[in-house]
């Protein structure tokens, strides 16, 4: 089992400035899953109850001279502490600088080392950076590589998490939404989310003393769309939503407000937009973040990030 690669400047800036801070907020520990073509950072894919997040990078977007081999179809997966990974990366970058040349490239590899408090060699993800007069090696401890069975399970969990909602709405400004959700935290912790085929996103929080909600209307829709019913502008947000669900033109689920707030932390990855959708049978709320190729409006297909929020109750759908 071998893995060795050099992080590119783009890879360093993607991870250090954007993805690691965001993914760390999703949860300290995640699976790092490396295949022949991709690197994945995965949260909660093998244990079901938290927010699942799947960040996928094509190897070229992070690495060059990428070499991987294992007896399991050249796939390696292990768990890693994102906080430590972030620290190691930041420190390596401070040694070799943000712009690398042929001589000060930042190498990442999997190693086994004997440490002073263990008899067995322990696995590490090692960052090796060379500065002008110095070289620094950072060893980030990782778990034992996952067994063949676990890797197969991880891959099938990724495959299963690819099912797309039929209707996706492009969400409002993430900062605005986050500031609203932060304030909602004082009021309650169960969030009803309804997404209509007209492009309405309705968040509602109910408890014994209050009903509090926000309805974003006329959002761009991807997938199955329906015409806005006439006269609905005179209705309240609640009755509009109820009517749309009854007509089968909306899905509604209940999720944890904490989970929703966590998924919004992905704005730290600086996505260009976010889409919200409810998978068929209302099994989960999916949030897909889209990244553009810098300077264009074209989707950067080498990076993808999406979250799946567990549904606490099938809701009215």
């Amino acid at each position: 089992m071998k893995f060795k690669a050099f992080l590119t400047d783009n890879g360093v800036s993607l991870l250090e400035k954007r993805f690691l801070p965001a993914l760390d907020k999703m949860g300290r520990i995640c699976h790092l899953y490396l295949t022949k073509d991709h690197a994945f950072f995965l949260h909660n894919l093998l244990n079901g109850d938290g927010v699942q997040s799947i960040a996928q990078f094509r190897k070229e977007s992070l690495f060059e001279d990428y070499r991987i081999s294992s007896q399991n179809d050249d796939r390696i997966a292990f768990t890693i502490d994102l906080g430590l990974l972030h620290r190691a990366l930041r420190s390596s970058v401070s040694v070799c600088g943000h712009v690398t040349t042929a001589t000060n490239r930042l190498q990442v590899k999997l190693v086994k080392k004997l440490t002073h408090n263990s008899q067995q060699p322990m696995p590490f993800l090692t960052f090796e950076s060379k500065g002008y007069k110095s070289a620094v090696i950072q060893d980030v401890p990782i778990s034992k590589p996952l067994s063949r069975v676990d890797v197969v399970e991880l891959q099938s969990a990724i495959d299963m998490a690819q099912d797309l909602p039929q209707t996706l709405v492009q969400g409002p400004d993430l900062h605005q939404l986050q500031s609203f959700v932060d304030r909602l935290k004082h009021v309650g912790d169960l969030l009803h989310i309804t997404i209509t085929q007209y492009g309405d996103l309705h968040l509602q929080l109910l408890n014994t003393l209050t009903t509090l909600g926000v309805e974003f209307r006329k959002l761009p829709v991807v997938g199955v769309q329906a015409h806005v019913p006439s006269g609905d502008q005179n209705m309240t947000a609640q009755s509009r939503t109820k009517y749309a669900v009854e007509k089968g033109e909306a899905l509604s689920v209940q999720v944890s407000l904490k989970h929703f707030a966590k998924s919004l932390q992905c704005h730290l990855t600086k996505p260009d937009c976010a889409f919200y959708g409810i998978t068929p049978l209302a099994s989960c709320l999916t949030v897909i973040f889209q990244f553009f190729i810098p300077g264009t409006r074209q989707t950067d297909k080498s990076i993808s990030l999406h979250c799946r929020l567990p549904v606490l109750d099938p809701g009215s759908a």
Binding site: P172, Q176, F180, T208, L209, T210, T211, L212, G213, V214, E215, F216, R217, K218, T236, A237, Q238
Partner: peptide, 11 residues
């Protein structure tokens, strides 16, 4: 804000 309406009903 016609396209982003916040509402609350307090018992």
């Amino acid at each position: 804000t016609p396209d982003a309406c916040i509402y609350a009903e307090i018992r």
